[in-house]
Amino acid sequence: MLFFIGLVYLIANSFIKIKTWLTDEQSLPLTELILTGEKKHVLLQDVRNILIKQKDRLNFFTLEIAEIQHQLEALPWVYSASIRKRWPATIKIHIVEQSIVAIWNDKNLLNRFGEIVYASPKGLKGEYVSLYGKDEFANDVLISYKRISQLLKVNDFEIASLENDARQATRIVLKNSFKLNLGQEQKLDRIQNFLKVFPLLERKYDIDKIDYVDLRYDTGFAIGWKQKKK
């Protein structure tokens, strides 16, 4: 009986010591970081700062991978992060950055899925189209932009900005050109009608003097002219 009790005590004590050793940061510390993926906007220091918060758990067995992943994906420019441990002391992190397609309401960005990215657009003006609308309709605005942009490319028009107001009426500013008022309905049809008559406009008028073309009419459109500078 005494031998059996002693054996149980020895096993339990050994288990506790092994567990303590495995979970002690000093025993199996993670000392090497490998960061892969695009790093245009996500800095190495951003990742290090998150790992530093886990300093008491930077052990091969106790590292909170899910927590680190959550914190990384909370960074504005990170779309997704994957984390792997490599024996005996390496943590490997792969970052996928946000794929930005537009500036949203002059203060945020939109990714290719129509999701708002709460990052500053500072320094990105001119690099992306500017889109405007209510946040809940961000994806709808992006879809409208893509469809209309494809049609306008036929005549080499490029969109500088597209705005959907509270009634979902669309207004477009073309690059180095005039504005298009599309209204709420039949937007693609109105663009197609505009493209059909544009060659006639180009021959008859000085296009540079046009301020806007209003396409919200069933049987035609209206032209607004730029005011002469005094």
Rank of each mutant, 00 (worst) to 15 (best):
F3R: 14
L10V: 09
N13T: 14
K17C: 08
I18P: 00
W21V: 09
E25T: 14
Q26E: 13
E32K: 13
K39E: 08
L58M: 09
I65P: 02
Q69S: 07
A74D: 12
L75E: 01
P76M: 02
Y79R: 08
W87T: 06
K92I: 12
V96H: 09
E97R: 03
S99K: 14
N105P: 01
G114V: 00
E115W: 05
E115A: 04
Y118L: 10
L124Y: 07
K125A: 09
E127A: 09
Y128C: 03
S130V: 00
L131F: 10
K134E: 15
D140E: 15
Q150P: 00
K153I: 06
A160W: 04
L162C: 00
L162I: 10
E163Y: 08
Q168F: 13
A169I: 08
A169Q: 10
R171S: 10
I172M: 02
K175V: 13
K179P: 04
K179W: 14
L180E: 00
L182D: 04
G183Y: 04
Q184W: 11
E185F: 12
Q186E: 14
K196E: 08
L200P: 05
L201V: 00
R203C: 01
I207L: 12
I207M: 11
D208W: 10
K209F: 09
I210P: 01
D211E: 15
D211K: 13
V213G: 01
F221T: 04
I223Y: 11
I223V: 10
G224R: 07
